[in-house]
């Protein structure tokens, strides 16, 4: 049985189409990433799957249960971690955990095994009100609370947004460990660099899926040759590349520009020639990343 099956889901908010004909499935024990910017429709999809919203069209099932008809049973067996920090800020760490254990008809002790690794990290602060924790700590607590009833599917919605890099790294390590314990995870994130940490990903933009595959699979489909161009005076370089008639796309990537050419590989020499007057010029072939792919697909979508 596939734990998550999504079939042509559409959802409209007024004039805004939040989800447009979205379909994909998540396999058992998979860590599946939904990657896209704010407003792409990620949270809406999460809410439909956790039975908080009804889709306008299409169907979906979680653990083989229909999200509309069997919503009560789904609610018992999934762990949901909303995008916004949604615990009681005035309750302490241990009070929050105990509360969520109780409303799921279980106890902290009964499922402590599953959350132990995570909980020990916040245990020193167990008497502190949740509202006074740092961003990373809050997310760990929220994850503990979402796991305390041993869900078979976990839905963390943007768990790493606004969290410092160390906590982000730790959070992904926790997700990997949960995956090893057999929990199916659908996670969303706006950070393209987190895509490679997932088994498979779906790229979503403006409510529509642009691609679904393993991160490597998506990168391999990016067939255009890509150059990383840099020079001492970045602004002049940018202007120059933008005006160059053979430029197909040019996007800043840190200190480099990622450039594709209409003429492809054949145009490299001419490009170098054109830019030769820039001091400190470097034009090198480079490997595309998920972000390059995302932008390429966005351009296609817009056309």
């Amino acid at each position: 049985m596939q734990p998550i099956v999504i079939n042509s889901i559409c959802k409209q908010f007024g004039k805004l189409s939040a989800l447009n004909n979205v379909s994909f499935t998540v396999e058992e024990g998979e860590l599946f990433g939904l990657i896209g910017p704010d407003g792409a429709g990620k949270s809406t999809l999460f809410r439909i799957l956790t039975t908080l919203l009804l889709a306008d069209k299409g169907s979906a099932s979680v653990m083989g249960l229909d999200v509309v008809k069997d919503y009560k049973r789904i609610r018992r067996s999934v762990g949901y971690m909303p995008g916004r920090f949604s615990l009681y800020q005035d309750l302490s760490v241990e009070e929050n955990l105990a509360f969520f254990a109780t409303i799921f008809n279980t106890t902290v002790a009964a499922n402590y095994d599953l959350v132990r690794d995570i909980y020990v990290q916040i245990e020193p602060f167990k008497k502190r009100p949740a509202g006074k924790l740092s961003g990373g700590m809050k997310q760990k607590l929220a994850l503990c609370c979402a796991l305390i009833h041993k869900p078979s599917v976990l839905f963390p919605d943007e768990p790493t947004t606004g969290v410092d890099p160390v906590s982000r790294k730790e959070f992904w390590e926790m997700l990997q460990r949960l995956k090893q314990k057999g929990i199916t995870i659908l996670v969303s994130t706006p950070y393209m660099d987190e895509a490679v940490l997932c088994d498979r990903i779906a790229l979503i933009q403006k409510g529509a899926l642009m691609d679904i595959d393993t991160p490597q699979g998506i990168i391999q489909r990016f067939r255009q040759p890509l150059w990383a161009v840099s020079a001492d005076r970045r602004y002049e370089l940018m202007e120059d590349v933008n005006k160059y008639p053979d430029t197909a796309s040019s996007y800043a990537f840190g200190e480099h520009l990622h450039v594709t050419l209409k003429s492809g590989e054949a145009g490299e020499a001419a490009l170098k020639q054109h830019l030769s007057r820039h001091r400190g010029l470097s034009v090198e072939r480079t490997q595309a990343g998920i972000e390059d792919c995302f932008m390429f697909l966005m351009q296609e979508q817009n056309q």
Partner: peptide, 10 residues
């Protein structure tokens, strides 16, 4: 620039 798509961000 939190949260915008990669093209808008650029």
């Amino acid at each position: 620039t939190g949260g915008v798509d990669p093209i808008t961000r650029r």
